[in-house]
C-alpha cells in the first residue's frame, strides 16, 4: 500500500516534468516566428487604417504611390517583405504623451515632406472582449481615412462583423472634428445610418453592445489625441 502510493507520486512527478519540459522547448523554439507574425499582423492593420485600399495579398502601393524605392529596387514578390519594407520606409512611428499621463502611439504616412495620413490605436470593450483598432485620419486630422477592427472575441456573424470590410469601409469619409464645433461625436447607428450625415455609420444588426463599445472608445480615444496633439498640429 505504502509502496503503491509512493510510485503514484513518482509517476505523476515524472510525467509532469516531462510534459512541461517538452512544452517549454516547443514554446521557446517557436517564439521568434510567432512574434514576427504578430508584428506583421500589427503592421498590416496600421497600413489598412492609413491606406484603406491596402491589400496584404497584393501590391500595397497604388500607382501614384509608387515611390523611388520600388521603382528602382524592383518589385518584391513575397508580401511579408513588402509589408515590413513599406512600413519601415514610409510609416513614421512616434510615441506621444497624452493628457492624464496616458501615452499613445502615432503612425504617420509621409510621401516626401507631405503628410498623407496619420493613424492612432484605439481599443475598448465590446460585448465579450476587448476590440482592438487603428483609426486613420486624413491630413486635416478630422476626416476618417480608414479604420480597422481586429483581434477581438466578438460573436462571429454578429459583433464579429466589425472586422468585415463592409463595416470598416462604412467609416471612410466620416468626420470626427470641425473648426466650428471642435470634436464631434461619431455615432454607430441602429441599422442604417442617415446617408447625408458625416458622423453616422451603419450599425451591425444584432450587435448593439459591440457597436456602442466601438462608438465609445473611438470617440474617447480621438478626444484624447485631439486635446494633446491634433489641436497643436492644426495650429501650425
Amino acid at each position: 500500500m505504502q509502496k503503491d502510493e509512493l510510485n503514484t507520486i513518482k509517476f505523476a512527478a515524472i510525467i509532469c516534468l516531462a510534459c512541461s519540459m517538452a512544452l517549454a522547448g516547443v514554446q521557446s523554439a517557436l517564439r521568434g516566428i510567432q512574434d514576427e507574425n504578430k508584428r506583421i499582423d500589427q503592421q498590416v492593420n496600421v497600413l489598412k487604417a492609413l491606406l484603406p485600399d491596402f491589400d496584404p495579398e497584393g501590391n500595397p502601393l497604388t500607382e501614384e504611390e509608387q515611390i523611388e524605392l520600388f521603382t528602382e529596387g524592383g518589385i518584391l514578390k513575397e508580401h511579408k517583405e513588402w509589408i515590413s519594407l513599406y512600413f519601415e520606409n514610409f510609416v513614421e512611428t512616434s510615441d506621444v504623451q497624452l493628457a492624464e499621463g496616458k501615452s499613445g502611439t502615432l503612425y504617420s504616412l509621409k510621401k516626401g515632406e507631405d503628410l498623407v495620413a496619420v493613424a492612432f490605436p484605439a481599443e475598448g470593450k465590446g460585448l465579450w472582449s476587448t476590440v482592438h483598432s487603428y483609426v486613420g485620419l486624413q491630413p486635416d486630422l478630422a476626416t476618417i481615412r480608414g479604420v480597422t477592427f481586429f483581434d477581438h472575441g466578438e460573436t462571429p456573424g454578429l459583433g464579429g462583423e466589425c472586422s468585415k470590410p463592409w463595416f470598416q469601409k462604412n467609416f471612410m469619409g466620416k468626420t470626427l472634428w470641425n473648426a466650428d464645433e471642435g470634436p464631434l461625436t461619431l455615432v454607430v447607428a441602429k441599422g442604417k445610418a442617415d446617408a447625408s450625415s458625416l458622423t453616422q455609420v451603419d450599425g451591425m444588426s444584432g450587435a448593439t453592445i459591440t457597436g456602442n463599445g466601438i462608438q465609445k472608445f473611438v470617440n474617447s480615444t480621438f478626444r484624447d489625441y485631439n486635446e494633446s496633439l491634433f489641436n497643436e498640429k492644426r495650429a501650425l
Binding site: 503503491d4 505523476a12 512544452l23 517557436l30 507574425n37 499582423d41
Partner: peptide, 29 residues
C-alpha cells in the same frame, strides 16, 4: 498507476494540444 490514469491522460492530451496550437500560431497565423 490506475488511480491517476485519467489525470495522466489529460496531461498528455493537453500537452499535445498546446504543442499543435503553438505550431499553428507560428506557421498558419
Amino acid at each position: 498507476p490506475p488511480k491517476i490514469r485519467m489525470i495522466v491522460e489529460m496531461v498528455v492530451i493537453a500537452s499535445l494540444v498546446i504543442t499543435v496550437d503553438q505550431f499553428l500560431k507560428a506557421f498558419a497565423f
